[in-house]
Structure formats: structure tokens, C-alpha cells
């Protein structure tokens, strides 16, 4: 299989000064397709790279879960990860905030960079990394505390105690997460008393309060009804001006609606990665075609 080709296709052409040295400019045919779709900023057909992985391999014990993944993720965009269950989407997502470090059998090699910095360098503190790379989980998981405490938690653990600072941050984050109007009258209410959709927006607000630059979302709407899901999708579109968002989803409509780029994984391989439009209208690989049309997976 022409593995090389699609690996190359997944590299964006870019010229962010700090990260420029990690980009391999592509001359292959596929590059054009990718490059075309990248937002045209100030007249250049180029996008900034936020995150990149090079020759990334991940293992859980003997289980080789991600196989030589090379990929660059554009900043201020939404990138969707799709693929059948167990193909490694969540694992890949959790590589970016080193959440997998909590699993004993986890093992990896290769390079992962955020803003050009190696996040698996020995000097990196996972706590600091996770403040910059926020995460929203599949099932809304608010803390069993008040709405206010949920949002303030990320700041309190950084030692911020001043009430006025916390109050402002809570209000701002809840507004950003489009939840403020619904909860402002009673911030002391237990977060567990909110509906599932509200809880998920609270989890997003909680993440925003820490002011990350990247938000990882692992199937953020899979536990929600269509209306609550639509709200989250709108929110994602609004947030992408300020944040780089990566979202794992099993919902093809969702991927095509909200994302700018889509990556298709299959059994630990990155099969295809391009802008969402060409991925869905004109997939290069038959596997991708079959998956997005629902013929397998």
C-alpha cells in the first residue's frame, strides 16, 4: 500500500516561523488538494501549525495501537478524527495532553510538538501542558460541586484565590460556553442538577477558564440529544477563532458540518487526512469512501 503517499498528504504546507523547521514541504500531487483548502490568510495559501506528530507509535503493552502517525494540525481550526471503534482516535487525542501517561501499560515513541516544542521532553511538566491543552470528555463529567466551583477549580488549583478574579473568570467562561444566561441566577446550584447538555457546556466552560490554546474533545456530543448537540457544535464554530479544536466523532454529519479538516483512522493507521470538503466529496481511499458512506465500521 502507498503508505508514504498519504503520510505526505497529511502534512500541511506552512510557514509559522517558530515551527517552520519541523515541516517537510510537500511536492507531491496530494499536497495541492490539502493546501487549497487551507484558509487563505493575508493572501498566503498557508496555515499555521499548532500540533504535529512525527513517526508516532503508541503501544498498550504489546498492543500496537497507533502506527507511525505523521500529521500536522492547523491552528484556529477544527480538525475531526473519524474511524471505526478501537482504531485509536481517543488514544491519539490523549497523546496531545499526555493523558495516556496515567495508564501503566502505555508506551510510545516518535515526536509530538505543540507550537514547535516537544511535549514529551523530560523537562515538560504534564500539569503545565494540560493547562494549555484542555480536554472535554465523552460523558459530561462535572465535579460534584456547584456550578461556580466547577468553573473556578482550574484557577484555584493554580493558586488564584482572589474572589473578584475568580468571579470574572467564571462569568466570562460561562458566557463563552453559552451557558451564562441559563445559570447566572444560581451559580451555587450543584452542577449535577443540570441537564446533560448543560453539563457538557459547563465542562467546556471549565476548560475555557484555564485559557488553553487547544481544546481536545472526545465525542463531546455522543451522550446528548440533537438539540443539545447542535448547541455544542455552534459553540465549537464560535470558539475556533481563538482556539485550536480537535474533535473525535462517530457522527459523519457532525464531522462534515463543523470541521475544517478530517482525519480518517483505521486500525491504528492514519488512512487519509485532508480538508473536510474534499474528504467527504472526494475521498482518495476506498476505505475512507466505504466508511463515510456507512458501508463498514
Amino acid at each position: 500500500m502507498a503508505k508514504e503517499t498519504y503520510m505526505m498528504a497529511s502534512e500541511f504546507v506552512l510557514n509559522k516561523s517558530r515551527s517552520s523547521e519541523l515541516i517537510i514541504p510537500n511536492t507531491k500531487l496530494e499536497t495541492d488538494v490539502v493546501a487549497q483548502s487551507i484558509k487563505i490568510e493575508s493572501g498566503r495559501q498557508l496555515a499555521d501549525i499548532k500540533i504535529s506528530s512525527k513517526n508516532l507509535n503508541v503501544y498498550y503493552g504489546d498492543n500496537h495501537v497507533l502506527k507511525n502517525i505523521n500529521m500536522s494540525i492547523a491552528s484556529n481550526s477544527i480538525t475531526a478524527f473519524i474511524g471505526p471503534s478501537g482504531c485509536g482516535k481517543s488514544t491519539y487525542l490523549r497523546v496531545f495532553n499526555r493523558m495516556n501517561d496515567l495508564i501503566d501499560s502505555f508506551n510510545m515513541n516518535g515526536k509530538v510538538e505543540v507550537d514547535g516544542f516537544d511535549i514529551y521532553d523530560k523537562s515538560v511538566e504534564t500539569d503545565e501542558l494540560r493547562k494549555k491543552i484542555g480536554m472535554v470528555f465523552q460523558k459530561p463529567n462535572p465535579f460534584p460541586k456547584s456550578i461556580y466551583e466547577n468553573v473556578a477549580y482550574g484557577l484555584k488549583i493554580q493558586g488564584i484565590k482572589k474572589k473578584s478574579v475568580l468571579d470574572d473568570a467564571v462569568e466570562k467562561s460561562l458566557k463563552q460556553a453559552a451557558l451564562w444566561e441559563e445559570v447566572k441566577s444560581d451559580l451555587k446550584k450543584s452542577a449535577l442538577a443540570l441537564s446533560g447538555g448543560q453539563q457538557q457546556r459547563l465542562c467546556i466552560a471549565r476548560t475555557l477558564a484555564v485559557e488553553p490554546s487547544v481544546i481536545l474533545m472526545d465525542e463531546p456530543t455522543s451522550a446528548l440529544d440533537p438539540i443539545a448537540s447542535a448547541k455544542i457544535e455552534d459553540l465549537m464554530t464560535e470558539l475556533k477563532d481563538q482556539y485550536t479544536i480537535i474533535v473525535v466523532t462517530h457522527n459523519m454529519q457532525q464531522a462534515s458540518r463543523v470541521s475544517d479538516y478530517t482525519a480518517f483512522f483505521y486500525m491504528g493507521d492514519l488512512i487519509e487526512f485532508s480538508d473536510t470538503k474534499s474528504m467527504f466529496l472526494n475521498p482518495k481511499k476506498e476505505r475512507t469512501q466505504n466508511y463515510i458512506t456507512g458501508r463498514f465500521g
Binding site: L102, Y153, R206
Partner: peptide, 26 residues
């Protein structure tokens, strides 16, 4: 539930902070 720990770690809490503020109260 592990989801509680993950939520805390995900916000940049250290292990001890996670234990003190989430695990032990729960």
C-alpha cells in the same frame, strides 16, 4: 469514578491536588 480524576488532571491539577480536592471528598 475515573472520569472525575480525568476531569481534574485535564485541567492541569497535580496528582496531590486531584486526590485532595476530588478523590478524597468523593
Amino acid at each position: 469514578p475515573n472520569t472525575l480524576r480525568e476531569a481534574s488532571y485535564g485541567l492541569g491539577a497535580s496528582k496531590w491536588q486531584t486526590i485532595k480536592w476530588q478523590v478524597l471528598p468523593a
